[in-house]
Amino acid sequence: MHAAHEADGVIAQLETFARPVREAVGTPSIGLGTWLSADAAGTLRRDGAALDRMRAGLARAGGEVVTVNAFPYGAFQAPVVKGRVYHPDWTTAERFDYTVDAAWVLARLLPDDVERGSISTLPLAWREPWDDARAAACRENLARLADELATIERETGRRIQVGLEPEPGCVVETVEQALLALDGLDRERLGVCLDLAHLATGFGSARDAVDLLDEAGIGVVKAQVSAALHVADPADPASRAALGEFAEDRFLHQVRRPGGEVAAGADDLPQALAGEVDDADAWRIHFHVPLHAEAQAAGLRSTTPELRDSLAVLLGGDRCVVDHLEVESYTWNVLPSAQRPTTDAELVAGIAAELTWAADALVDLGLERGCA
């Protein structure tokens, strides 16, 4: 999710990052989880020349696109994002139009041998304000989206699925809430995007999540292979000082504790450090940290052990629950200074290390190594 909001900026990033990452990983081709802003999605849908440039850029980079992130509407790398990332939400025509544009673009970018594409989207809205009228507007827009996805499939032969991505603090924070939001809607085209950092932040279980989804007949459209922060003793002064290095101005970093009710905790790390969250037990913080950096400073660690457990549930059993996986670390440039890449080459090396970690984790589960 590089800082490119226009279509040509996205295309330029293929040469700046996608090709070097593929070369560093050492694969002949690489799958790219592509973030398209509303501006980029609209341009690529309506400008055939821009779409051709995108295809050509993908070919040069050795990349292919099967999944799109259509959660942030725009300006995701602005100096301050915080709660703006949840606007416009699913009560609005803007969110519907943006997602439809992204779906049409994805249908036209899918490789010939890929059966379906996946899109992750906002978990309806931030939890406040919320009422029956806003809930009804969301359902109407999601029903219209399913109709549009059916049209795309009829006209292009490509099946596109959209998954709500549960996130702490939102209307849909848990899988249970996702089931309520999707009840009665098209289950062939609408499902859940399971972000494994979000799941871990809420002390959730992938086994419980998959069982609930299976029982409801709702699919995991894609999984985001991501890790959050865990601090065993948030009352410890050294741990609090280390956590302070992660309290930054761009993104929200929601904090949860074990056994807390939905929306219990704090909506951002500075609030938790200021005393809004009980520090008698462990905290989990919604801060996507590099997958290969489990050990952190002064009593902090990443949730990669929980991530391994989740991957085993999703991919290590008798069946694969999901076949679209996306490594999503968008926080490289707000990491504590000692971990933060300062050049494009350092960022490429970090992303390649994450992909290698993910590939090795899948091999450990019995999958065969192939393209990234």
Rank of each mutant, 00 (worst) to 15 (best):
V334D: 10
V175D: 07
R240V: 07
G366Q: 12
A3K: 12
L194I: 13
V210E: 02
F287A: 08
I285V: 15
L311Y: 03
L362P: 02
A102H: 01
D89G: 03
P129H: 10
A78I: 00
D112W: 10
E188R: 11
S337E: 15
S120H: 05
E188G: 11
L314C: 01
R46W: 02
V262S: 01
S329R: 10
G9T: 03
F251M: 10
A228Q: 01
E188M: 09
G31T: 05
A272T: 04
R159A: 09
R134F: 12
T201H: 00
L243Y: 10
L109S: 00
R284F: 01
G219I: 06
V80S: 14
T304M: 09
H253G: 08
L180Q: 15
I285L: 08
V231C: 12
D112K: 15
T174C: 10
P258T: 11
A293P: 07
Q271H: 13
E261R: 15
V65N: 06
E64K: 03
I351H: 04
N69V: 04
A247C: 13
R116D: 04
H87F: 14
V114S: 01
P111A: 11
A274F: 12
G350C: 13
H324A: 11
Q271G: 14
H87M: 15
A263I: 10
F246Q: 07
P341R: 06
R308E: 13
V225G: 03
Q161F: 08
E140Q: 13
T342I: 13
Q177K: 09
G33C: 06
G57C: 02
Q254I: 02
E248R: 15
R144Y: 11
Y73D: 01
H2Q: 14
G42P: 03
D360P: 03
